[in-house]
């Protein structure tokens, strides 16, 4: 069954308090080489049928309007993955 992966990140210019907290913790345990961490979201969406142009258009709309909020986030990637051995 094909999987669609949508990746959403907080806008680059915005403070990411979660990432900052993780970076702070890494620094505290001595992981000195890491200068910053940003945390985003990965959505894995499965569809029943093949990935058609209509499916792609719908996923792009869902990603832009529901999975992300363009005021605070960017959709940074939409990937279409078909498991090995399957074709579409």
């Amino acid at each position: 069954m094909p999987t669609i992966v949508v990746e959403v990140m907080p806008k680059a210019e915005l403070l990411d308090p979660q990432g900052k907290a993780v970076a702070g913790a890494l620094a505290r345990i001595g992981k000195d080489g890491i200068s910053s961490v940003r945390i985003g979201k990965r959505f894995e969406i499965t569809v029943d049928g093949p990935i058609t142009d209509a499916v792609r258009a719908e996923v792009e709309q869902i990603a832009a309007e529901i999975l992300s909020n363009s005021v605070i986030e960017d959709v940074v990637g939409i990937h279409y993955e078909t498991p090995a051995g399957e074709t579409h």
Binding site: P10, L14, L15, P17, Q18, K20, A21, N69, V71, I72
Partner: peptide
């Protein structure tokens, strides 16, 4: 209201976490 675009802007996690 922000998510429904009835007002402008957005709300994000407090800067101090």
């Amino acid at each position: 209201l922000a998510e429904a675009h009835l007002v402008d802007g957005g709300l994000i996690r407090n800067d101090h976490g």
